[in-house]
Design a protein around this nucleic acid. Sequence first.
DNA 1: ACATTAAGTGATT
DNA 2: AATCACTTAATGT
Length: 213
Amino acid sequence: MREKLKDFFALQFEDALIDEIIEAGELKFYRSGELMMDIGDQVDFVPFLLRGVFKVLSEDKNGDEIAMYFLERGDTCACSFINSLESKKSKIRTVAETDSEVILVSLERFDEWMVKYKSFRHYVIESYSIRLREMIEAIDTLAFMKMDERLLKYLHDKAQVLRETMLNTTHQEIAYDLNTSRVVVSRLLKQLENQGKIALNRNRIEVLDIDRF
DNA sequence: ACATTAAGTGATT
DNA sequence: AATCACTTAATGT
């Protein structure tokens, strides 16, 4: 655990902070598909990702969901800061995209470290700002890109965070994430395949035009 | 062999 | 781009 912490967070964290994280943090494993937090959940912890990928989704009143962004190792969930400090009710759903390892830290300790450690404060503010940029990107994508572009971006993003060009997913799942219908996804994927950008198989999509990680 | 689930397609709005 | 109404293909039992 110490090694993993060092690898992804500790570059900027001082040893005393690492010790505290190890002492106070709860190491938790999530299996692929498992829910970390759901909309409306009471959130009283802040997660730090050691390994794996999480998908962050939002949902409207009708229960239609839309994928916002992915979290990878070294990331934390900026939304949980807000959730924690304000309503304590999650506005988002976070689901494990792969088997993952996370350190959960209670809000009390989180607050404490914010005051106590400069490195921690910087890390949190930095994550916050990265997340804000991602949000803006997500909004741009939704507002200005057509479905075919959104689809390709989705595939690229996913391949990127997973560091894997072979994606195990279904057209239906993509449709849920992009909040469209499966038929539309199937047709657009077919187009992309004809353009030589991807290869299609049942439950599998290979992204061919990735400019390497 | 049969049922189930994923994916493909034409037509319509 | 969404929906309907199929059809076809892949996979599990």
